[in-house]
């Protein structure tokens, strides 16, 4: 099975972000970067499928400036076989533009299975996978929390609000991965050494049309400082009174 995994390099999220002087982006100075969470799950899923089958190829693809090479190397050190960088000065705000560029590479690769994360942690569009599937005209399952491709088809489960659904389609297919399938492995020392020799090919990204731009980025208003109304069960009457009269939620 030939598997592609699209991975995005995003900042680590456990910080207080600053807005860049441009006013429409996050200030990246001093931030640490890594593979977007769900993309890590997708990479792990791909590697596990290959390990189980004993044959096949896992190709990781990232669109962005040269800094994405570090993220691609990480995926290689986890066990992916080769990497492609779709080189662009910046990642566009319009998911369509990204999807078109990824589709060019994916179409050429004739993959059996194309994996994505459910969403990128920074842009959070949850759109690129569905769009790529439309462009390639292949079936698509988004946000799979279980995935079985052993029968040469896709059998997946999707979590709904308070329910779930089971979905089937044939291969080749696009599948985006939710949490719950696989936790990404830590690259072993051997993996890291091996990754240095694996192919990583940069190519210019053929970005698609941009019809959506990010005009501004802002920090959400701080929550007004709350207060501790008291200790133990004795504080409950005060709390309920506040919920009724002040917050008006009772």
């Amino acid at each position: 099975m030939k598997i592609a995994v699209c991975i995005k390099r995003v900042p680590e999220m456990d910080v207080r972000f600053k807005i860049a002087a441009s006013g429409n982006a996050v200030d990246e100075a001093g931030l640490k970067f890594d593979m977007s969470d769900f993309d890590g799950y997708a990479a792990e899923v791909a590697i596990q499928i290959k390990e189980k089958l004993g044959v096949g190829e896992v190709v990781v693809i990232a669109l962005g400036p040269d800094t994405v090479q570090e993220t691609l190397r990480k995926a290689l050190s986890m066990g992916a076989d080769r990497a492609v960088q779709l080189k662009a000065d910046a990642v566009p705000a319009d998911p369509w533009s990204i999807a078109e560029a990824l589709a060019v590479e994916l179409r050429a690769g004739s993959f059996d299975l194309i994996l994505f994360g459910r969403m990128s942690l920074d842009a959070a569009n949850h759109s690129v996978p569905n769009m790529v599937a439309e462009l390639l005209d292949v079936p698509c399952v988004v946000a799979a929390s279980q995935l079985d491709t052993s029968g040469g088809t896709v059998k997946a489960r999707r979590e709904l609000e308070g329910a779930a659904e089971t979905v089937e389609c044939s291969l080749p297919a696009v599948v985006s991965i939710d949490e719950g399938i696989a936790r990404p492995r830590y690259p072993s020392l051997k993996g890291i050494m091996a990754a240095k020799k694996k192919p990583l090919e940069p190519k210019p990204a053929q970005l698609g049309a941009v019809r959506m731009t990010r005009r501004a980025a802002a920090l959400p208003p701080d929550r007004a400082a709350g207060r501790i109304v008291g200790e133990g069960a004795a504080a409950v009457p005060t709390l309920v009174e506040l919920l009724r009269t002040e917050a008006k939620v009772l």
Binding site: M13, L121, M212, R214, R215, A216, P220
Partner: peptide
Amino acid sequence: KPGYTGKVIATLALT
């Protein structure tokens, strides 16, 4: 729309 795990609000223009 919120992004960056809810820590940044992006204003998008759909042209």
